[in-house]
């Protein structure tokens, strides 16, 4: 029986820090749940879940790495502890028995883990381990081969994106190749002389229609801001006074 060494204290300190992170991330999830109605955005929920999971993982990793030390460390109340008045807190802190729900969870895992090996035709323990070694890497590789963003599918790109009817007036950019020059030519051909009359007019009162004006950037000309202010133009139109002179 010895008191914990400095190294061992350091390990405990690491446990403390990791647990502190975990506690904090759980607290933040609870706060954000309480503050939003009905739920936080799914993306924020997901990122919080990821953080908790990561913190949980780091606690778990730490515990198994220092399994040896932690199983050999025994805690007990010192003489300063007010054992008489605060016995139940102590009990809570030193409890080693699992919470009934966790116990149940462990039991279910045990049952599933046992039956998985018992059945004939299922993978052996070793095969399973191999599979689990291989699978994450393989899945990752496969995922990397795909383009998860982008405006065109692989199929569309193979048959040529200029053939894709998007119905959009703006040009969709294709991340993969840069043949924008061709695209612009295609665009010019499609232009008609007649203006298309779309939509309906809004009647002044009552149920009427409204025209939808989408702010669409023109693609064939680079924007140039007028250099003569409107007021100067109007002045010229009114009196013939050339712009820039007053």
């Amino acid at each position: 029986m010895t008191t914990p060494s400095q190294d061992q204290i350091k390990t405990l300190e690491q446990s403390r820090q990791r647990l502190a992170h975990l506690t904090r991330s759980l607290a933040s999830l609870i706060t954000s749940l309480n503050q939003s109605d009905p739920l936080p955005t799914w993306s924020s929920l997901q990122s919080q879940a990821t953080i908790i999971s990561r913190n949980l993982g780091s606690v778990s990793e730490h515990l198994s790495e220092n399994h040896e030390l932690l199983t050999s460390l025994v805690a007990f109340p010192g003489p300063e502890y007010p054992g008489r008045t605060q016995a139940n807190i102590l009990e809570q802190l030193l409890r080693t028995k699992l919470d009934p729900r966790v116990d149940d969870w462990v039991a279910r895992g045990r049952k599933a883990g046992t039956s998985a090996l018992e059945d004939r035709g299922s993978l052996s323990e070793r095969d399973l381990a191999d599979l689990w070694d291989w699978a994450p890497v393989a899945a990752n590789e496969d995922a990397r081969r795909r383009n998860w963003g982008g405006n065109f599918t692989l199929e569309e790109r193979e048959s040529g994106i200029q053939n894709v009817v998007t119905g959009l007036k703006r040009q969709l950019e294709d991340d993969d190749d840069d043949d924008e020059d061709e695209d612009e030519e295609d665009d010019d051909q499609g232009e008609e002389d007649e203006m298309e009359i779309v939509g309906a007019r809004k009647s002044g009162t009552g149920p009427g229609l409204e025209f939808d004006i989408a702010a669409v950037a023109s693609q064939d000309q680079t924007p140039v801001a007028p250099v003569v202010p409107l007021g100067e133009i109007l002045r010229y139109m009114t009196t013939g006074a050339p712009p820039g002179q007053r």
Binding site: E196, I197, G199, F211, Q221, P223
Partner: peptide, 24 residues
């Protein structure tokens, strides 16, 4: 009144044609 930069002219013509439902 409004000032309309050159590059917006064609688009605006189309929008006005749509709004007023007539050819310019």
């Amino acid at each position: 009144f409004a000032s309309v930069p050159t590059h917006q002219h064609h688009e605006l013509l189309r929008q006005l044609a749509g709004l007023t439902a007539m050819q310019p």
